[in-house]
């Protein structure tokens, strides 16, 4: 009972305070409460980061202890976690050694993984853009015009391409995006209302 009731009450109070702060006329008490709720949210998020690190530590220590598949990679992970945490704590995140780690280890690895996107976009475009019917034809034509219109070579191929590309982005695209964004925002309001009123309990594991 309490396991569910307490989070529902917290959700209701936090939601109504923030809504009240926004809609009601300026009120020092409500303003300060609203600010506190927003501050708590950032504090909880910061704690969650720590919790995430603890979870990583626990999961990978167990993996090493049980010598599960890939346990050697877990050693590398734990060593990196401990080393960077120690440097950050004792030398500070603005120290040259921390920055070196960021610039020459973390950034290249992360950027490298992310650069896979270029390859994925190429193969996905090749696979997906097929002239199956007039709708997919319009989609494909739009994509081709925008892709070429965004870069210099498009202008070399056809002078008017950048203008057509800009028109596609500014008119049909904006119209479509507005529709989806308004629908999405309404959905988010509906879900938030359900959470505030305690009707939405999926995040508590479901139930009535």
């Amino acid at each position: 009972m309490t396991r569910r009731t307490v989070p529902l009450i917290i959700g209701f109070l936090a939601g109504t305070i923030v809504l009240g702060k926004y809609f009601l006329p300026q009120n020092a008490f409500l303003d300060s409460l609203g600010t506190d709720v927003v501050n708590w949210r950032t504090i909880v998020a910061a704690f969650a980061l720590g919790l995430g690190a603890v979870n990583l530590l626990g999961t990978h220590t167990m993996r090493i202890a049980r010598k599960e598949k890939g346990w050697d990679a877990s050693i590398v992970l734990l060593a990196s976690l401990v080393t960077f945490t120690a440097i950050g704590l004792f030398k500070g995140t603005t120290s040259p050694v921390y920055q070196w780690g960021f610039n020459y280890l973390y950034q290249p690895i992360y950027s490298g993984i992310s650069s896979l996107l270029a390859f994925m976009i190429t193969s996905a475009s090749y696979r997906s853009f097929r002239f199956k019917d007039w709708q997919s034809g319009v989609l494909m034509l739009g994509a081709v015009i925008v892709m070429l219109g965004q870069v210099g070579i498009g202008e070399l191929l056809f002078r008017g391409l950048p203008a057509v590309s800009s028109w596609i982005m500014a008119v049909p695209n904006t119209a479509g995006m507005r529709g989806i964004a308004i629908g999405g925002a309404l959905g988010a309001i509906a879900l938030s209302l359900r959470v505030i009123l305690g009707l939405e309990r999926g995040y508590l594991g479901g139930g009535q």
Partner: peptide
């Protein structure tokens, strides 16, 4: 880096056209 991006876009467009040629 813009030349490389231009050529990347051109390759994607080329592949889309080739795929569609075969498809149609």
């Amino acid at each position: 880096a813009m030349d490389a991006q231009s050529m990347g876009h051109l390759l994607i467009v080329g592949l889309v056209l080739i795929g569609n040629l075969g498809f149609l």
